[in-house]
Structure formats: C-alpha cells, structure tokens
Amino acid sequence: MIMMSSRGPWSLLEDLVGLQGDFNRLFGDGGWRVRAGRALYPPLNVWQSADGLVVDAELPGVDPSAVELSVEDGRLTISGERSNGGEPGEGAACRERTEGKFSRSVELPFRVNSDQVKATYKLGVLRVTLPRAEEDKPKRIAVQAA
C-alpha cells in the first residue's frame, strides 16, 4: 500500500509508479500473485538436477549470518527475521518493504548429505545447494552377458 501524508517526506516526494506497481502485484503476470500475499515470504526458486537441489530465496538486505538453515525430516527450512532498521528521530512516510519473522520449508525429493549443504548470499539472494546423498543416487546397473 502507498501511504500518503500531507506532511513529511511525501510532501517532498511524489510517487509516480506506485499505483501501477500495486496493480501489477495484484493482477500481474503469472507468478507475481505470490507477491500479493505476505504469507509466502521469502519467495523461492527451486532447481532440481541429478546432483541435487538448489534453492534460491529472495532476501534483500538480510544479514546472512542471522538466517537459520536446517535440514531435518526430509525438509529444508529457511528462517530468520528481517528488520529494516530506522533511526530514532527519523520520520517515516512510507514503509512498503517486508519486515518481521519469516520461515519457509521445502520438501526434499531425496536424501541429502546435510554436512555438504552450502549456502551463499549474493545481490540479496540466498542460495542453498543441497547435494544428493551418494547412496541415494540412482545407479545404472549394467547387465552382464552370461
């Protein structure tokens, strides 16, 4: 939502694209419906390959060391808290950025070596790489000629 006040920063700034943005978020192209609901935060992308799973979470401005990752009972859980700061004595005209505690889980389609799970943080996107456990990988069995 765009919040307006007659005084404060919005009297110095006028938002030109905000309304269109809200429209996009509500009715926009496929996939963006997720953004309208705050329940699913952070948004995720998941890629699967023979080697494992890669999970990206869109978490801009989050201290990566404060994000908790766990692999338990066949699921990955990403949780933490996002705080947008704000200094005392600072007036706020508009706060659209998501703030607060979050947690999301992904059901893992195979077993992973939890000690080989890696996480990186770049451009506000957290990437968790979960290698598939070697003993769980499908094995090709060669038929031997008698």
Binding site: G8, P9, W10, L12, L13, D15, V17, G18, Q20, G21, D22, N24, R25, G28, D29, W32, N84, G86, E87, G89, E90, G91, A92, A93, C94, R95, E96, R97, T98
Partner: peptide, 13 residues
C-alpha cells in the same frame, strides 16, 4: 515484466 519494487521513505534533518 515491469515491477514496482517496494520502497521505504524516511526523513532526517
């Protein structure tokens, strides 16, 4: 897709 990103606007002295 053109998306309007969320914005916080704050004022200091």
């Amino acid at each position: 897709a053109v998306v309007a990103p969320p914005v916080d606007v704050t004022e200091t002295k």
